[in-house]
Write a protein that binds this DNA or RNA. Structure first.
Lengths: 188, 188
DNA sequence: TCATTTAGTTTCGACTCAATACTAATTTTA
DNA sequence: TAAAATTAGTATTGAGTCGAAACTAAATGA
């Protein structure tokens, strides 16, 4: 039974990632969940940098996340700012200190270095398989995908004129379409 | 930058797994870490069914794990038994109730169903890539591998005479070599 | 205009976790 | 072979996570 095998290996990989993340965060006085939130905030786009989005991404309640964010702010890893249009909304942005920490953490977790040692063809293949699995999982359990815009069915490539989000009709830059969006949906 | 992409997708997949596991456990009055310990115990071999091994597998201290195991025993999901040879060692075995719960949880986490929808060739490829990544990560961070015997460099295939563990020199059955071992090391 | 919804915070009780100190069995070594 | 060191596991404690519920404030809507 091959799926059992794949399942086990993947589970072990996730465990290792969690272990390394825990060990790393501890050295900098951060809890695993705080590292995860901070990592997400360095990768998400401007529609997705709110406490609510973090809560959805991590699968926690907003009350719980609110506390973690408070700690991150107090320790100077991120800044909160009220939205100009809608004053209920809080925008979250990692500070320099915050983004630097995330960069270091990525290396420490040793998945990135391990991937760097692999053939780039293989990685592309792996990524596309991951996407296919995520798409299926999403269909089965109905959770949000939280993928990058350039893999989203709402993203429109207007060639020389850049990109446009089909949901908000806003133009997106080359950098924008690499970021994670909470409204993300895979094509098909 | 392709490794970044693969990294993000894998991270999201791990997050989803954790979310589903949390939601499932909650319905049965179990914490995520307790589900993980119980899952491990349904998959590990007879060298690896101790509190210490569980702690190593999950990357937690033995004191912490001791408490989780106490809860699992009290709720009737596993049985403890002192080892015959070495009376310090406690052997852990899931009860019927325990293994049934794990089976249900695997389905609920929706990775297994998603994998089942994939081409079996693809899954085999995916599995081998995962192993290659795990091997590299292990080399980088020096953690134990916790793989199944049949992928272990100590496992000897004696053809018609079955298998033998090169570490303990004990014979292993066809079922045995599918189980996770704490002494596991990938070849090469 | 008043009710409802939405975004976020605060508080509280149950629980996890690491650190520490402990017991008991085994192994080492002197 | 007796004392010391090591190993497996448990108990306790304090810091911190988590979800639930109650809350505030802003936006929506009927």
């Amino acid at each position: 039974m091959s799926t059992q095998e794949a399942n086990d290996v993947l589970e072990r990989l996730c465990n290792l990632q969690r272990m390394e993340a825990r060990a790393f965060g501890l050295r900098y006085g951060l809890q695993p969940v705080q590292m995860e939130a901070l990592t997400y905030l360095t990768q998400c786009n401007r529609y997705s940098n709110t406490p609510q989005a973090v809560a959805e991404y991590l699968g926690l309640t907003k009350g719980t996340v609110s506390q973690s964010l408070k700690v991150l702010e107090q320790k100077g890893f991120l800044r909160k700012q009220a939205d100009k249009q809608d004053k209920r909304i809080v925008r979250l942005a990692p500070t320099m200190k915050g983004s630097n920490l995330v960069k270091k953490a990525l290396l420490a977790r040793s998945l990135e270095p391990a991937l760097a040692m692999m053939d780039s063809m293989k990685i592309a293949e792996l990524t596309s398989m991951f996407r296919s699995i995520l798409r299926k999982m999403q269909k089965i359990n109905g959770r949000k995908a939280f993928g990058a815009c350039h893999t989203c069915r709402f993203n429109e490539d207007h060639q020389k004129n850049g990109y446009v989000c089909g949901l908000t009709r806003e133009p997106l830059s080359v950098q924008d379409v690499q970021l994670i969006c909470r409204e993300h949906q895979y094509p098909q």
